[in-house]
Amino acid sequence: MNPLTDQELHQLAMNIVGKEMEEDGFEFLSINSKPKKDPQFVALKKGKLHFVVVRAIRYPNNPVEYDEDLMITMRDHAVKFKARTFYAGVGLANSNNYEIPVHHDEDYVVNYAGLIEIK
């Protein structure tokens, strides 16, 4: 059994967030799948620009807690483009045992509260 790498966890989190955004009517202008190369998504919705920072969060860490300094920097950058800034933390855990990593070919549990606007 091999656990998902940080990059694979990040990709999984991006897929979860991207799918929800797509269903919610966002149009993607750019997607950056490199971890910590922010923002991961630049998208339009109703003519308004959105910057979205995605993080895969391993259990037991709280996916709604974010790096405030980073998000303020992102918000300040977004303002220059008249964009709104959002944080999307996706909690991921092994569904068989939260204490062990998420593995390939095993079910996992998602804890995702949606986009959190940084104002």
Rank of each mutant, 00 (worst) to 15 (best):
Met1His: 09
Leu4Ile: 03
Thr5Ile: 05
Thr5Trp: 03
Asp6His: 14
Leu9Cys: 14
Leu9Val: 03
Leu9Met: 14
Gln11Met: 10
Asn15Val: 07
Ile16Phe: 03
Val17Ile: 07
Lys19Asn: 14
Glu20Trp: 06
Glu23Leu: 13
Glu23Ile: 01
Asp24Cys: 05
Asp24Leu: 03
Ile31Gly: 00
Ile31Glu: 15
Ser33Asn: 09
Pro35Gln: 09
Lys37Ile: 06
Asp38Glu: 04
Asp38Cys: 06
Pro39Arg: 08
Gln40Ile: 02
Phe41Trp: 02
Val42Cys: 06
Lys45Gln: 14
Lys45Val: 11
Lys45Ser: 05
Lys46Ser: 08
Gly47Ser: 04
His50Tyr: 06
Phe51Ala: 04
Phe51Asn: 05
Phe51Gly: 02
Val52Lys: 06
Arg55Val: 14
Ile57Cys: 12
Ile57Arg: 10
Arg58Val: 06
Tyr59Gln: 11
Asn61Cys: 03
Asn61Ser: 09
Asn62Val: 11
Asn62His: 07
Glu65Arg: 13
Glu65His: 07
Glu65Leu: 10
Tyr66Arg: 07
Tyr66Pro: 06
Tyr66Phe: 15
Tyr66Ile: 08
Leu70Asp: 00
Ile72Thr: 15
Ile72His: 07
Thr73Gln: 11
Thr73Ala: 11
Met74Asn: 01
Met74Leu: 07
Arg75Thr: 02
His77Pro: 00
Val79Asn: 12
Lys80Val: 08
Phe81Ile: 03
Phe81Asp: 10
Phe81Asn: 06
Lys82Ala: 10
Ala83Ser: 10
Arg84Asp: 13
Thr85Tyr: 02
Thr85Trp: 03
Phe86Lys: 12
Gly89Pro: 04
Gly91Glu: 02
Leu92Arg: 00
Ser95Glu: 09
Asn97Ser: 13
Glu99Leu: 13
Ile100Arg: 15
Pro101Glu: 12
Pro101Ser: 08
His103Cys: 14
His103Glu: 15
His103Phe: 15
His104Asn: 15
Asp105His: 12
Asp105Phe: 11
Asp105Tyr: 12
Tyr108Cys: 01
Tyr108Ser: 03
Val109Cys: 02
Val110Gln: 05
Val110Ala: 02
Tyr112Asn: 14
Tyr112Ile: 13
Ala113Phe: 14
Leu115Lys: 01
Leu115Gln: 01
Ile116Glu: 12
Ile118Gly: 10
Ile118Gln: 09
